[in-house]
Nucleic acid binder design. Sequence first.
DNA 1: GTGACAGTAGACAGACCGGTCTGTTATTGT
DNA 2: ACAATAACAGACCGGTCTGTCTACTGTCAC
Lengths: 207, 207
Amino acid sequence: MAPTATPSATVRSRVTAATTPVSDRLSARDRLLAAADELFYEEGVHTVGIDRIIERAGVAKASLYNTFGSKDELVRAYLEGRHTARQARVTRFIAGYTAPRERLLGVFDALASFIAEPGFRGCAFVNASAESLPGGAVETVSDESRAWTRALFAELAEAAGVADATGLAAQLVLLYDGAMVGARMDRTAATALAARAVAETLLDAAL
Amino acid sequence: MAPTATPSATVRSRVTAATTPVSDRLSARDRLLAAADELFYEEGVHTVGIDRIIERAGVAKASLYNTFGSKDELVRAYLEGRHTARQARVTRFIAGYTAPRERLLGVFDALASFIAEPGFRGCAFVNASAESLPGGAVETVSDESRAWTRALFAELAEAAGVADATGLAAQLVLLYDGAMVGARMDRTAATALAARAVAETLLDAAL
DNA sequence: GTGACAGTAGACAGACCGGTCTGTTATTGT
DNA sequence: ACAATAACAGACCGGTCTGTCTACTGTCAC
C-alpha cells in the first residue's frame, strides 16, 4: 500500500530500449498465432505449453488470455489458420491451369509442394485429432477443412466431365490422405507424385 | 524408527479378501499392457498419465516401473503389441484365400474388419507419431510395422504376377493409409471398401 | 521353515501444467 | 492534458506429471 520507491528509471530505460513502436510490429495476436503455429505443428498440441508459446511470441501471458481466452481457443485459431493457408495454396496452384483435367491434378501438385517444404510433419488436422477427444473444437475445424477438400474434388471432377463426380472425389480424398500420412510416416516426398499418378489413372477410368 | 503398532489385522483381511490366487489372474505385466492398450489408443499417449493406467490395471506404480522402467518403454510395448496384433489379423484374413488376387485384396478386408470394430480410432502408429518427436521409440516401431506391410504387399503382388511389384505395393500402401486416416477423420467405415475397389482397378492395370 | 520373489499401497519429490492476478508502461483519441 | 486501451513482466494458485522410495504381504521352491 505504501508508495515504495521503485527503480523506475532503470526499468524505463531498459523497456524503452527494447520496445519498438507498436505500429511497426505485428500485433500480440499475430505473434501468438505465429508462435503457436510453429510450435503446435512441430511438437504437437499437448506437448507444447503456454509458457513456451508466450516466450517465443515475446508476449505476456495476460495478453494471450485476453486475446484467446484459453489454450483450447488458441488451438482452434491455429487450426483455422492452417485451413485458410491450405485453401490459399491449393487455390493458387489450380488457378495456374485452365484445362479441367490439369486443374484437378493441380491439387496434388499443391500437396507435393506442401510435403516438400522443410519442416513438413504431416497433416495438422490429423495430428491434432490424434491427441484430442471427440466432440471438441479440433473435430469441428477438421470437418470443415475436409468437407472443403471433398467438395473441391467433386467440383473439379464434374468440370472434367466425370459422370460419378462424388464417387471419384471419394477416391481422390483417399489418395490425398494416403499421400499426406505416408509422406509423414516414411519421411519421403515421393508419395505425392505417386498419388498424382494414381489420380490420373482413376480420372481416365471415370471418364 | 520405533516399532509402532500398525493395524495389520485390518489391512491383512482387506488385502486377503481382494486377492485371488496369482495363477488365476493375468500377470501385472499383461494387465498393464491391456490397460495401456485401451487408454493410449482411446485418448492418446500424452493425455493418459501413469496413474490412470495403474488404476485401470489394478497394479501398483512400483510394479509398472519394475516391469517397464519408464513410460516410454510402456509406449513402445503398447505399439509392439499393436503391430503383432495387426500382423495376426492380416495373416488370418489372407490365409482364408488361395488365389493370389484374393489374397492381395484380403489385406483390405482385414482393414475393413479393423475399421468396423467399435472404438476404432485410426492407426495407433500414426496417432502416436503425431505426438512424439522424431528419433524416438515410436518412430522405430512404426517403421518396422510399415516396412512389414509394404513387403507383404510387394510379395502378394509378385505372386499375383505383377511385373512392377514394388511399384504397385507403393500404390497399395497409399490406399491403405488413406482408408485408415479417412475412416478416422470422417467417422465412416466406407473408406476400406473404396480402397479395396481402387486396389482392384490398380491390380488389373498392373497385370 | 526360510529366503527369494513378485506384488501392493501410498507418501514423496521436483518439474510443469493452464490459468489468474497485480502492478507498470507506452500509445492513442479527445 | 488526461482517460482509455493495450501491452508488458512476473508472482502465484491448485493441480497433475513422471519417477523414486519405504514398508508390507502373499506364493513358492528347497
